Simulated assay, not measured.
Amino acid sequence: MSEEIRIVETTEMPVYGLRQHMAVKDFGTAFGTIFEQVAKDHLQPAGPTGARYYDEEFDREDSDIEVFIPLASKEGANASVGGMTCAKLTHKGGYSTLDESYARLVKWIEENGYQTTGAPYELYTKTGYENPNPATWETDIYFPVEKTQG
């Protein structure tokens, strides 16, 4: 289940991220690494964690992925996310059905005269940390887009 798709102007967020080829099962280790570095550098997290996907085709076992933590300021940031026009959808439910929301969003982009302009990203706005029931989880999915010509 997910909400309606809409076009939004996103705010640029400074982030501390780790980009590498990894499997979905490696997210926990990658997030652990960046949380340790953020604490070591005394950086201030500011918002939900996320991931950005750089490959054209997503492979659960090996994809070019950046996991990140938004920061309160640019100090210590090694990347940024947002600051662009995006097609947005909020996926409600467990991560095992994210592919359905991605497919719906990609189809909507094509059918509504848009084209993607960059790597899609997710923000994990409600997770198992707040409630272990996957039915309560929410993931905001953003695809940078622009209107196609003609």
Rank of each mutant, 00 (worst) to 15 (best):
Q20W: 03
H21M: 11
M22T: 08
A23S: 14
K25W: 01
D26N: 10
F27D: 00
F27Q: 00
G28A: 14
G28K: 09
G28R: 08
G28F: 03
F31A: 04
F31T: 08
G32D: 06
G32L: 06
T33A: 12
T33G: 00
I34S: 02
I34L: 09
A39S: 13
A39W: 09
K40T: 13
D41F: 07
Q44F: 08
P48L: 01
P48E: 04
R52N: 02
Y53W: 07
Y54V: 00
E56Y: 08
E57A: 14
E57N: 11
F58N: 00
D59M: 05
R60P: 14
R60G: 04
E61R: 04
S63A: 15
I65A: 03
I65Q: 05
I65N: 04
E66I: 13
E66L: 07
I69T: 10
I69Y: 02
P70N: 09
L71N: 08
A72P: 05
A72Y: 07
A72V: 08
K74A: 15
E75G: 12
E75H: 14
S80T: 15
S80W: 10
A87W: 11
T90C: 03
H91D: 02
K92R: 15
G93W: 04
Y95D: 00
T97H: 04
T97E: 10
L98D: 01
E100K: 15
S101H: 07
S101E: 06
Y102R: 01
A103P: 07
A103K: 15
R104S: 14
L105F: 12
L105T: 15
V106Q: 11
V106C: 01
W108P: 03
W108F: 06
E111S: 09
N112T: 14
N112Q: 08
N112E: 07
G113P: 11
Y114A: 05
Y114R: 09
Q115L: 12
Q115A: 13
Q115T: 15
T117R: 11
T117N: 06
T117A: 06
G118V: 11
G118M: 07
A119F: 06
A119V: 12
A119M: 06
P120E: 08
P120T: 10
E122G: 07
E122I: 11
E122T: 13
Y124L: 05
T125W: 06
T127S: 05
G128E: 14
E130V: 10
P132K: 15
N133V: 15
N133Q: 13
